[in-house]
Simulated scan of single mutants.
Amino acid sequence: MRSNPEEIAAYYRQAIWGGQYRTGDALPRAVDVAEEFDADRKTVLDAYRQLADEGLVEVKRRAGTVVTYAAPMRWMGTERYSRSLRARGVPAFAADREASGQPWQRSDQSTMVQRVRASPEVAEALSLPVGTEVIERSRLVRDAGGRPTQSLTSWYRVSDVEGTAIETSTENTAGSGGGYSVLDGLGLGPTQVTEDLWPRMPLPAEAKLLELPGSVPIVDFTRWARHHDHVVEFARGLYVGPRFRWSYTSPISD
Protein backbone atom coordinates (compact mmCIF):
# COMPACT_ATOMS: atom_id res chain seq x y z
CA MET A 1 0.00 0.00 0.00
CA ARG A 2 1.41 3.39 -1.00
CA SER A 3 2.23 5.97 1.67
CA ASN A 4 0.13 9.12 2.01
CA PRO A 5 1.35 12.66 2.88
CA GLU A 6 0.34 12.33 6.54
CA GLU A 7 2.48 9.21 7.02
CA ILE A 8 5.52 10.75 5.36
CA ALA A 9 5.10 14.00 7.30
CA ALA A 10 4.79 12.04 10.56
CA TYR A 11 8.03 10.18 9.85
CA TYR A 12 10.06 13.33 9.20
CA ARG A 13 8.34 15.26 11.98
CA GLN A 14 9.52 12.68 14.51
CA ALA A 15 12.98 12.65 12.93
CA ILE A 16 13.23 16.43 13.31
CA TRP A 17 11.88 16.46 16.87
CA GLY A 18 14.24 13.61 17.77
CA GLY A 19 17.31 15.46 16.52
CA GLN A 20 18.08 13.28 13.49
CA TYR A 21 17.76 16.46 11.42
CA ARG A 22 18.97 19.72 12.95
CA THR A 23 18.43 23.37 12.09
CA GLY A 24 19.94 24.05 8.66
CA ASP A 25 19.94 20.40 7.54
CA ALA A 26 18.23 19.59 4.25
CA LEU A 27 15.65 16.81 4.07
CA PRO A 28 16.17 14.19 1.35
CA ARG A 29 15.11 15.03 -2.19
CA ALA A 30 11.45 14.38 -2.88
CA VAL A 31 12.29 11.90 -5.62
CA ASP A 32 14.41 9.83 -3.22
CA VAL A 33 11.74 9.90 -0.49
CA ALA A 34 9.09 8.89 -3.02
CA GLU A 35 11.12 5.82 -3.93
CA GLU A 36 11.76 4.89 -0.30
CA PHE A 37 8.11 5.26 0.75
CA ASP A 38 6.55 3.88 -2.44
CA ALA A 39 4.85 7.19 -3.18
CA ASP A 40 4.85 9.71 -5.99
CA ARG A 41 6.76 12.99 -5.86
CA LYS A 42 3.60 15.08 -5.37
CA THR A 43 2.73 13.10 -2.23
CA VAL A 44 6.18 13.86 -0.77
CA LEU A 45 5.91 17.55 -1.63
CA ASP A 46 2.49 17.65 0.08
CA ALA A 47 4.10 16.11 3.17
CA TYR A 48 6.90 18.68 3.10
CA ARG A 49 4.32 21.46 2.81
CA GLN A 50 2.64 20.14 5.97
CA LEU A 51 5.97 20.36 7.79
CA ALA A 52 6.46 23.89 6.44
CA ASP A 53 3.02 24.91 7.73
CA GLU A 54 4.08 23.64 11.16
CA GLY A 55 7.21 25.79 11.12
CA LEU A 56 9.54 22.78 11.02
CA VAL A 57 11.03 23.33 7.56
CA GLU A 58 11.29 25.93 4.84
CA VAL A 59 11.33 25.18 1.13
CA LYS A 60 14.19 27.13 -0.42
CA ARG A 61 15.04 27.46 -4.08
CA ARG A 62 18.15 25.42 -4.92
CA ALA A 63 18.76 24.48 -1.27
CA GLY A 64 15.72 22.19 -1.10
CA THR A 65 13.66 21.61 2.04
CA VAL A 66 15.67 22.95 4.98
CA VAL A 67 14.96 22.34 8.67
CA THR A 68 14.12 25.56 10.55
CA TYR A 69 12.93 23.95 13.79
CA ALA A 70 14.92 25.19 16.79
CA ALA A 71 15.69 23.07 19.83
CA PRO A 72 12.89 23.22 22.40
CA MET A 73 13.02 25.73 25.21
CA ARG A 74 13.70 24.48 28.69
CA TRP A 75 10.53 24.83 30.74
CA MET A 76 11.98 25.37 34.21
CA GLY A 77 9.26 24.02 36.47
CA THR A 78 8.78 25.93 39.72
CA GLU A 79 12.23 27.52 39.39
CA ARG A 80 10.67 29.91 36.88
CA TYR A 81 8.62 31.47 39.71
CA SER A 82 11.54 32.23 42.04
CA ARG A 83 11.50 35.52 43.94
CA SER A 84 15.04 36.26 42.77
CA LEU A 85 13.92 36.18 39.13
CA ARG A 86 10.90 38.36 39.89
CA ALA A 87 13.15 40.82 41.70
CA ARG A 88 15.30 41.02 38.55
CA GLY A 89 12.20 41.82 36.50
CA VAL A 90 12.08 38.42 34.78
CA PRO A 91 8.53 37.02 34.36
CA ALA A 92 8.03 33.27 34.13
CA PHE A 93 7.89 32.99 30.34
CA ALA A 94 11.12 34.99 30.08
CA ALA A 95 12.83 32.75 32.64
CA ASP A 96 12.31 29.84 30.25
CA ARG A 97 13.80 31.89 27.40
CA GLU A 98 16.85 32.93 29.43
CA ALA A 99 17.48 29.35 30.56
CA SER A 100 17.37 28.29 26.92
CA GLY A 101 19.62 31.06 25.62
CA GLN A 102 16.78 32.64 23.66
CA PRO A 103 15.93 36.35 23.48
CA TRP A 104 12.75 37.87 24.89
CA GLN A 105 10.99 41.19 25.29
CA ARG A 106 7.86 42.18 27.19
CA SER A 107 5.96 42.77 23.97
CA ASP A 108 6.22 39.02 23.24
CA GLN A 109 3.19 38.76 25.54
CA SER A 110 -0.19 40.22 24.60
CA THR A 111 -2.80 40.60 27.33
CA MET A 112 -6.54 40.98 27.78
CA VAL A 113 -8.14 41.70 31.18
CA GLN A 114 -11.81 41.65 32.14
CA ARG A 115 -14.15 40.91 35.02
CA VAL A 116 -16.20 37.74 34.57
CA ARG A 117 -18.46 35.50 36.59
CA ALA A 118 -16.64 32.54 38.11
CA SER A 119 -17.32 29.22 36.39
CA PRO A 120 -17.76 26.15 38.62
CA GLU A 121 -14.08 25.23 38.05
CA VAL A 122 -12.80 28.72 38.90
CA ALA A 123 -15.17 29.08 41.85
CA GLU A 124 -14.00 25.77 43.32
CA ALA A 125 -10.33 26.67 42.90
CA LEU A 126 -10.75 30.08 44.58
CA SER A 127 -13.24 28.85 47.21
CA LEU A 128 -15.96 31.21 45.97
CA PRO A 129 -19.66 30.75 45.16
CA VAL A 130 -20.30 30.01 41.48
CA GLY A 131 -21.03 33.24 39.63
CA THR A 132 -18.95 35.48 41.91
CA GLU A 133 -17.23 38.27 40.00
CA VAL A 134 -13.52 37.57 39.47
CA ILE A 135 -10.70 39.19 37.51
CA GLU A 136 -9.63 37.27 34.43
CA ARG A 137 -6.24 37.95 32.85
CA SER A 138 -5.52 36.20 29.51
CA ARG A 139 -2.13 36.14 27.80
CA LEU A 140 -0.74 34.88 24.50
CA VAL A 141 3.03 34.56 24.24
CA ARG A 142 4.95 34.52 20.95
CA ASP A 143 8.59 33.73 20.25
CA ALA A 144 11.08 36.06 18.56
CA GLY A 145 9.81 34.84 15.19
CA GLY A 146 6.21 35.75 16.03
CA ARG A 147 4.92 32.18 16.47
CA PRO A 148 2.71 31.45 19.51
CA THR A 149 4.36 29.26 22.12
CA GLN A 150 1.73 29.31 24.85
CA SER A 151 -1.49 30.84 26.12
CA LEU A 152 -2.42 31.31 29.75
CA THR A 153 -5.53 32.60 31.53
CA SER A 154 -5.47 33.43 35.24
CA TRP A 155 -8.32 34.21 37.61
CA TYR A 156 -8.05 36.20 40.84
CA ARG A 157 -10.39 37.27 43.62
CA VAL A 158 -11.49 40.88 43.21
CA SER A 159 -10.81 41.44 46.90
CA ASP A 160 -7.17 40.41 46.42
CA VAL A 161 -6.11 42.40 43.34
CA GLU A 162 -8.76 45.04 42.60
CA GLY A 163 -7.20 48.18 41.12
CA THR A 164 -3.68 46.73 40.98
CA ALA A 165 -1.60 46.25 37.82
CA ILE A 166 -3.03 42.74 37.53
CA GLU A 167 -6.36 44.36 36.69
CA THR A 168 -5.28 47.62 35.12
CA SER A 169 -2.22 46.70 33.04
CA THR A 170 -3.28 45.51 29.58
CA GLU A 171 0.09 45.86 27.87
CA ASN A 172 2.64 43.08 28.24
CA THR A 173 3.31 41.85 31.81
CA ALA A 174 1.40 43.02 34.89
CA GLY A 175 4.50 43.90 36.89
CA SER A 176 8.22 44.01 36.22
CA GLY A 177 8.44 40.34 37.17
CA GLY A 178 4.93 39.43 36.05
CA GLY A 179 1.75 39.10 38.08
CA TYR A 180 3.53 37.37 40.95
CA SER A 181 5.67 40.46 41.55
CA VAL A 182 2.41 42.41 41.98
CA LEU A 183 1.23 39.81 44.50
CA ASP A 184 4.58 40.15 46.30
CA GLY A 185 3.89 43.86 46.76
CA LEU A 186 0.49 43.06 48.24
CA GLY A 187 1.98 40.63 50.76
CA LEU A 188 0.34 37.76 48.83
CA GLY A 189 3.36 36.42 46.96
CA PRO A 190 3.02 32.71 46.13
CA THR A 191 4.67 30.36 48.62
CA GLN A 192 3.53 27.17 46.89
CA VAL A 193 2.55 26.23 43.34
CA THR A 194 0.70 23.11 42.23
CA GLU A 195 0.73 22.24 38.52
CA ASP A 196 -1.17 19.65 36.50
CA LEU A 197 0.11 18.75 33.00
CA TRP A 198 -1.83 16.79 30.39
CA PRO A 199 -0.34 16.15 26.91
CA ARG A 200 -3.03 15.84 24.25
CA MET A 201 -4.03 16.87 20.74
CA PRO A 202 -5.57 20.34 20.35
CA LEU A 203 -9.22 21.06 19.75
CA PRO A 204 -9.94 23.09 16.58
CA ALA A 205 -10.28 26.39 18.48
CA GLU A 206 -7.05 25.73 20.37
CA ALA A 207 -5.16 24.93 17.17
CA LYS A 208 -6.44 28.19 15.68
CA LEU A 209 -5.38 30.19 18.74
CA LEU A 210 -1.86 28.72 18.69
CA GLU A 211 -1.72 28.80 14.87
CA LEU A 212 -1.10 25.06 14.65
CA PRO A 213 -2.14 22.31 12.28
CA GLY A 214 -4.14 19.68 14.13
CA SER A 215 -1.22 17.24 13.99
CA VAL A 216 0.90 19.06 16.60
CA PRO A 217 0.34 18.05 20.26
CA ILE A 218 -0.13 20.53 23.08
CA VAL A 219 0.26 20.38 26.85
CA ASP A 220 -2.86 21.32 28.79
CA PHE A 221 -1.70 23.14 31.92
CA THR A 222 -3.49 23.92 35.20
CA ARG A 223 -1.94 25.87 38.08
CA TRP A 224 -2.92 26.72 41.62
CA ALA A 225 -0.71 29.38 43.27
CA ARG A 226 -1.06 29.70 47.05
CA HIS A 227 0.07 32.19 49.62
CA HIS A 228 0.30 29.65 52.44
CA ASP A 229 -3.25 28.14 52.46
CA HIS A 230 -4.84 30.95 50.42
CA VAL A 231 -5.18 30.35 46.66
CA VAL A 232 -4.21 33.69 45.10
CA GLU A 233 -4.34 32.60 41.46
CA PHE A 234 -5.95 29.81 39.45
CA ALA A 235 -4.70 29.43 35.89
CA ARG A 236 -5.35 27.33 32.80
CA GLY A 237 -2.97 27.29 29.84
CA LEU A 238 -1.94 25.62 26.61
CA TYR A 239 1.66 25.04 25.58
CA VAL A 240 2.85 23.96 22.13
CA GLY A 241 4.27 20.55 23.06
CA PRO A 242 7.33 20.34 20.78
CA ARG A 243 8.44 23.88 21.66
CA PHE A 244 9.32 22.94 25.27
CA ARG A 245 11.43 20.44 27.15
CA TRP A 246 9.92 20.05 30.61
CA SER A 247 12.54 20.19 33.36
CA TYR A 248 11.94 19.86 37.10
CA THR A 249 14.17 19.85 40.15
CA SER A 250 12.28 19.09 43.35
CA PRO A 251 13.24 18.16 46.91
CA ILE A 252 12.38 14.60 47.95
CA SER A 253 10.26 14.43 51.08
CA ASP A 254 10.95 12.07 53.96
Rank of each mutant, 00 (worst) to 15 (best):
S110F: 04
S119E: 05
A165W: 01
P103E: 03
P120L: 00
Y156T: 09
L152A: 06
L183K: 10
L126S: 07
V141Q: 09
S107D: 10
I135H: 03
L140W: 04
R115M: 03
T173A: 05
N172G: 13
S138P: 02
A144Q: 15
V158W: 08
T164A: 04
L128W: 03
A125F: 13
G178W: 14
S154G: 06
P148M: 02
V122T: 07
T170H: 13
E171H: 10
R142A: 02
P129F: 12
I135A: 03
Q150Y: 10
Q102N: 08
V141G: 01
T168M: 15
A165D: 13
E167A: 07
S119W: 04
E121C: 09
S169L: 06
P103S: 05
R147N: 11
R139Q: 06
D184R: 03
E136V: 07
Q109H: 09
A99R: 01
R115I: 05
L183Y: 10
A95S: 08
E136A: 09
G185Y: 13
R147G: 01
R115H: 05
G185E: 12
I166G: 01
V113F: 00
A144Y: 11
V116N: 10
L126G: 14
A94M: 11
S159E: 15
E171T: 15
V158A: 08
T173K: 04
S100I: 02
S107P: 00
S176C: 06
A99Y: 02
G175A: 03
R115G: 01
V182E: 12
E171Q: 14
P103Y: 00
G145C: 06
